[in-house]
């Protein structure tokens, strides 16, 4: 009886799996077409049926965007923002998360933990306008500073590190460190940091990708086109060259490559970073 049920189930499961393969193809198609269109001429892109495989026009298309949109400038700008912000955010979050995980029950602990949780519900749009005014007073408009320094304090990062360190490091370890007369900061640097490397990587990848994709804040603080990060520069290009589909698609592709390489290398950490938020 059980066996019969299983067999019918197997057939149904195969059909469901194939349907999912089909749906996954629909999800990938826009990206695939971006890559395909980037390698064809304008005429080829506008015909029906559309090209379904890569062409040989990539160099020609590149020569057209190179003059108006040197793609490596925005990529460099994005890196200037992403790298220091990510290193800072990960270290600041790890240190604060370590404090919250280690000093449970100390005066002020409850308040600090509750406050950090509360920051998660402060929508960034609430601070957008006053932040812009603050940056103009500091003389930071049209520089990369507003995108780097303020973003290092992330309630999400602290909570994520607090949860991670709480589960990865037993309290006995802190007691042992105390016996050795190791201070709070020395313990953090020499004991905690080496153990939580996977957690640092996960938060780091997530931060790199979300920062790479940021649009609104760079739009508000960066006025000068030469300072534009990748999404801003591409948005500009797509407006000025809207009729040159292959060029727009090629530039888009170039802007996507760094993130996709990172994902290919660190997808496991990235997924670990996503699910950590759900575990409270």
């Amino acid at each position: 009886m059980k066996r019969y049920w299983r067999n019918r189930e197997a057939r149904g499961n195969l059909i469901l799996t194939l349907l999912m393969v089909l749906l996954s193809a629909v999800f990938v198609l826009p990206l695939f077409w971006t890559a395909v269109f980037a390698t064809h001429t304008l005429q080829e892109v506008f015909q029906f049926p559309p090209p379904l495989w890569f062409g040989d026009q990539i160099a020609v298309n590149y020569s057209r965007i190179e003059a108006v949109f040197p793609p490596f400038r925005p990529i460099l700008n994005s890196l200037i923002v992403v790298l220091p912000k990510t290193i800072g955010l990960v270290l600041v979050s790890a240190l604060a998360g370590y404090g919250l995980a280690r000093y449970v029950g100390r005066p002020g602990h409850k308040f600090l933990l509750a406050m950090t949780f509360a920051t998660l519900f402060f929508p960034p749009s609430l601070a957008l306008i006053p932040f812009f005014l603050q940056m103009s007073w500091l003389g930071w408009l049209n520089t990369f500073w507003p995108l780097i320094v303020p973003a290092m304090a992330s309630g999400f990062g602290v909570i994520w590190m607090y949860t991670y360190i709480g589960s990865a490091i037993p309290h006995e370890l802190y007691e042992a460190a105390e016996m050795d007369n190791s201070g709070p900061l020395a313990t953090f640097v020499f004991v905690v940091l080496p153990i939580i490397r996977p957690g640092l990587a996960a938060l780091g990848v997530w931060t790199v990708i979300s920062t790479w994709n940021d649009f609104q804040l760079p739009l508000v603080v960066l006025g000068d086109g030469t300072k534009f990060t990748v999404p801003l520069a591409l948005t500009m290009l797509s407006r000025t060259h809207f009729s040159d589909t292959p060029a727009v698609m090629l530039a888009t592709l170039i802007g996507l490559v760094p993130v996709f390489i990172l994902f290919a290398l660190l997808s496991r950490q990235f997924i670990a970073g996503l699910t950590s938020g759900a575990v409270k």
């Binding site: 979050s93 404090g99 000093y103």
Partner: peptide, 27 residues
């Protein structure tokens, strides 16, 4: 009691108060 706790939270708190809490109150 709470010195080390505040010490470890300090970088987060300073940046948070300066660039998140202040703008929210200002808002």
């Amino acid at each position: 009691g709470s010195g080390p706790l505040w010490l470890t939270m300090a970088p987060f708190l300073i940046i948070f108060v300066a660039f998140s809490l202040f703008p929210v109150l200002f808002s």
